[in-house]
Amino acid sequence: MNIVVLVKQVPDSGAERTLSASDNTVERASANNVINEMDEYAIEEALKIKEAHGGEVTILTMGPAGATESIRKALSMGPDKAVHVQDDALHGSCAVATSKVLAAALGTLNADLIIAGAESTDGRVQVMPHMLAERLGIAALTGARKLTVDGSTLTVERQTDEGYEVVTASTPAVVSVWDTINEPRYPSFKGIMAAKKKPVQALALSDLGIAADEVGTAGATSAVVDFSPRPPRSAGTKITDEGDGGSQLVAYLATEKFV
């Protein structure tokens, strides 16, 4: 099976994040950038399917030059090769434009199965997998906590607020995964060394037949008009339990009219 995994590089969610003062896009230059956590689960799932059914795993990333670091890291887990869509004009692209670019790149890759993370930690938009399915006219099975591959039939347990839904489709398809689906492997030393030699194909917008003004800040379908940090919360009362901590807690609840 020919599998493409979508990997996005994002600012580390464990650190302070902000928007760039000059153009209100996500500040990536100064941030500590990492692979979007959910995408590691997508990579793991792809590798497991390859191990069971054979085939090839390709990483696809749209992002700035610095994203190569995350691509190598992804490759060190085991995928065969990568495609990096990189173009200065892409800076500040909205989700609609990003989906146009990724769909065009996917068009060159002839994938049976495209696996993405269910959401990215920077935007948390959760829209990309369905946007791509819409553009490519293929099935989308999103929010998977379990994926079964049986020939060309895919079955997913899709996590919902109430429980789950069982959904099924034939390849080609886009699947997006939550972190409940598996436990991503750590890259081995051998994997890290091998990743350095794996092919990474660079694609520019011109290779995809997309004009510069269709993407980036120029082609954005939405704009940030204002950004302000939210005032941090301050600590309130803190008591130490000396036998009546529970009662005091309820007394507080009562003054706040919760009981």
Partner: peptide
Amino acid sequence: IFELADYGVVGDLNKVVPQAADEIRKR
């Protein structure tokens, strides 16, 4: 967590929570 708590209790939840539950029942 105490840095953002409006009200914090430093203590063992196994003692504090049952006592709080009893107190709510009483009220």
